[in-house]
Design a protein around this nucleic acid. Structure first.
Lengths: 198, 198
DNA sequence: CGGTGACTAGACAGACCTGTCTGTTCGGTG
DNA sequence: CACCGAACAGACAGGTCTGTCTAGTCACCG
């Protein structure tokens, strides 16, 4: 058993299992070009696996898309929570969340929010729509808890406002690729926080 | 000539020319389900025209998409400018622009910004990307002119902030379909304006 | 050493997509 | 009436997509 595990880990350093390679290829291709535009042939080509491995691991393309979105959800929410937890003061924590977002803008492959992109390709009411709503609800919860902790008035309303800044910033940075977006979102968040505390 | 024109107008009341019917069908289908998802067969079926009429009028599907986005651009920018022009006071004019947007949320077929949706289906750098940038730039100009007229400090920065609220609101209302979005965007715009004038 | 399970390579079916082409119908004009 | 151009219906070609299936390879384990 342990002997097998060691052998696996050595093997993984050279060539990780197909499921992981597929998820990585899906993340790169789906995020950059869209879920609907990229076919399974391109995913398996980039992952370097056989098509049967994809359907064995994920069942269908929709299964791969769901796994891609789930991984994105956990990864981004995790980064935002880590940014918030790095600041004990709740107001600073909220600004740290926006700085965490702004750091993503600088990545050369930044292409907006994956849920926003995926949702635009599928009709409302489907599983992608539900996943996008869940993602947004969790992000809004992060803001709301921090607003309550900061003692602002109307924390629910302020959380909605901060999410407007957040998703508007992600969308703007995707299309404009402009440093002004990061400055504007931070200034807007600061102004809204100051007004809610005064 | 004039006789022909009169005959045409009578005819149009019964059955408008294929180009208009195609644009209307494209608007309904592309906006609701996405540019990439909807095929030309469904467009011509809804428009009630022959496929040859589509390719005669627009050359290609991409030509129809461009015409669809152009029509959306003119229609929405026109509505926002009209809303702004209805208020002589620039601060009230800015809020009127947001109210104009919030009125769109109540339409049962509201599905966010058409440029945001279309851009998510095409890679960056293409004609759709350029059209989206032009649309956003014009919307930002509306805000900037009103900010200058209102005498706010840093009108450029404030215009960027207002656009964050605008596009974040459109995106949020698309996914959440929640009345809180309209309230939050108005409150955020008011707070930002008040802070920039104090 | 023989077997077992995971993986690979690639052909294939069936559906759908864009774009073209062939005929046909029909209202308006000379 | 004869004609002409616009629009119609629909078949068709060529390509791409998802998903299935067959056949072969290879590492590991008893």
């Amino acid at each position: 058993m342990s002997h097998t595990a060691i052998a696996m880990s050595v093997e993984e350093q050279l060539r990780r299992p197909p499921r992981e390679r597929l998820l990585e290829a899906a993340r790169e291709l789906f995020y950059a070009e869209g879920v609907h535009t990229v076919g399974v042939d391109r995913v398996i080509e980039r992952a370097g696996v056989a098509k049967a491995s994809l359907y064995s691991a994920f069942g269908s393309k929709e299964g791969l898309v769901s796994a891609y979105l789930e991984e994105y959800h956990d990864r981004v929410i995790g980064r935002r929570r880590a940014a918030a937890d790095s600041e004990p003061d709740p107001v600073r924590a909220i600004l740290a969340v926006f700085d965490s977002l702004a750091r993503d803008y600088q990545r050369p492959d930044y292409n907006g929010c994956a849920f926003s992109g995926a949702r635009a390709e599928e009709p409302a009411g489907g599983p992608v729509d539900a996943a996008a709503r869940a993602y947004r609800a969790e992000m809004r919860d992060i803001f709301r808890e921090l607003c309550i902790k900061a003692g602002t008035r109307e924390p629910d309303l302020l959380a909605w406002q901060l999410q407007l800044i957040y998703s508007g910033g992600a969308e703007s940075a995707k299309i404009e690729r402009n440093a002004e977006v990061a400055a504007a979102q931070r200034a807007a968040a600061e102004t809204l926080l100051r007004a809610a505390l005064a």
